[in-house]
């Protein structure tokens, strides 16, 4: 009755609210944790100590190099047709402006196609992208590529409508990628409200001028660590189920949702199994990734270091789309493995979270899944996730202890049962 014991302990028993309370203490103490920052170093030290205090096995830090981008002071002001402050967040990896800033006329477009069709107008201007929010995966292209696409047509900077499904004048940051051979221009996100304002002004033929100041600096890569702890398997200790979330965050808000919740329900999974005196046949390994927000930097180095043992990797699990009320699990693997995972999910009937969906997702586990290892990701009611994502709104206030209890129960039952089955998942 292991599954029922886990559910009872996590949702109704003495461990209820523990992952929430641990997360609150952590983010209230450390704050946000951007790659290369002192805060991230403190966070890793904190977790290294906390996991040891929790009597987990093989607590260790695995060294990696991560980007170190620093935002600096930044501001934007619409100068014409009237003065208005624009709330901005520079994008990770962006170059800064000259100290005096950049003052230029604006061209507003709603798509890359429109930019191409109006390329003659864009030279020497600031490109404002007012792309509609379709989905995160589709719309985030403007944040990732907007600067380089604007630079190709001679723009001096780009301001991109935040990739947000709801806005209260809140800018959302994120990583952006410069293309090789294309000039690097400053790039930041503006609010949905200001993007729409400038789009309306522009549609009326009104000339818009914006002053942009960004003090961003790219430092040399910094030392960082993936944080690891285990419950060592009793029968096949070399075979591993990974449960994971990422410890780094953006430099705004608290990183409580992205991905504090995922990291702390993953820790909770090991704590619950330990509390119940369970010892699965295989090793359950907690990995708290570093440098995820810059493109899975810590996890890619982890993969390169450990892929020699890929045949022993049973299942890789990552929670990185929030820890709202869970609705099931996403899974990627062969049909034979899916049948088994469907059976495992039935064990969660007592809390009515039994659905198995397709297409596990998670930057940090993607390297393993692409190489054929079965992968699973927590699916929750993430309808509000992109309200807060990468913004000052990503705070503990988003989190809910009851939801986290349920997330931890789902996460732990799946990790434990798969780790304890007599055979590894087919692959």
């Amino acid at each position: 009755d292991a599954a029922k014991s886990i559910i009872d302990l996590a949702v109704y028993g003495s461990a209820q609210n523990r992952s929430y309370e641990r997360l609150a203490l952590f983010v209230d103490t450390i704050g946000n944790r951007v790659s290369g920052s002192d805060n991230l170093k403190k966070a890793i030290k904190y977790m290294y100590s906390a996991l040891q205090d929790d009597k987990l096995q093989n607590v260790s830090l695995e060294s990696v190099k991560v980007p170190h981008w620093e935002r600096g002071k930044e501001s934007a002001m619409m100068l014409q047709p009237r003065q208005k402050n624009l709330a901005i967040l520079g994008l990770g990896g962006s170059v800064g402006t000259p100290p005096e800033g950049i003052s230029a006329e604006v061209i507003v477009v709603s798509s890359f196609a429109e930019l191409q069709s109006r390329e003659q107008e864009a030279k020497g201007k600031i490109v404002v992208y007012n792309q509609p929010y379709v989905s995160y995966g589709e719309t985030v292209q403007y944040r990732s590529r907007g600067a380089s696409e604007a630079a190709k047509v001679g723009a001096v900077a780009s301001l991109i409508r935040s990739v947000a499904s709801l806005s209260i004048n809140s800018p959302h940051t994120g990583w952006q990628d410069y293309q090789n051979g294309v000039p690097k221009i400053p790039t930041a996100c503006i609010t949905v409200e200001d993007a729409e304002l400038m789009a309306r002004l522009s549609s009326r033929g009104v000339k818009i001028v914006v002053q942009l100041n960004m003090g961003a600096v790219q430092h040399p890569d910094a030392d960082s660590f993936n944080t690891v702890a285990e419950i060592v398997g009793s029968k096949y200790p070399e075979q591993v189920v990974i449960v994971s979330g990422h410890l780094d965050s953006w430099d705004v808000g608290q990183g409580a949702m992205d991905d504090g919740g995922g990291a702390f329900i993953s820790w909770e999974a090991l704590s619950l199994i330990r509390d119940l005196g369970l010892r699965p046949k295989r090793t359950i390994r907690l990995v708290l990734w570093t440098g995820e927000e810059e493109g899975g930097v810590g996890s890619s180095q982890y993969y390169e270091r450990h892929k020699v043992n890929i045949r022993n990797m049973d299942l890789v699990m990552e929670s990185d789309i929030g820890t709202f009320m869970p609705v099931g699990m996403q899974f990627s693997g062969k049909p034979e493995a899916r049948v088994i995972m469907s059976e495992v999910m039935k064990l969660l009937a007592p809390i009515n979270i039994t659905k198995l969906y397709d297409n596990a997702e998670g930057t940090d586990i993607s390297f393993w899944m692409q190489a054929g290892v079965p992968g699973a990701s927590l699916l929750d009611d993430a309808s509000r996730y992109f309200w807060f994502h990468h913004s000052e709104g990503d705070t503990m206030t988003v989190q809910n202890p009851i939801w986290m209890n349920h997330c931890a129960a789902v996460w732990t039952v799946v990790a434990y049962v798969v780790a304890d089955l007599e055979e590894m998942l087919p692959r």
Binding site: K4, V339, I340, E422, E423
Partner: peptide
């Protein structure tokens, strides 16, 4: 062999029973 899943029906039943044992 289960034609849909490519796994031995006997093996599948055995694994289902094994998983059910965790209830």
């Amino acid at each position: 062999t289960d034609s849909q899943h490519g796994v031995s029906s006997r093996k599948l039943e055995r694994i289902k029973e094994e998983v059910a044992g965790y209830k």
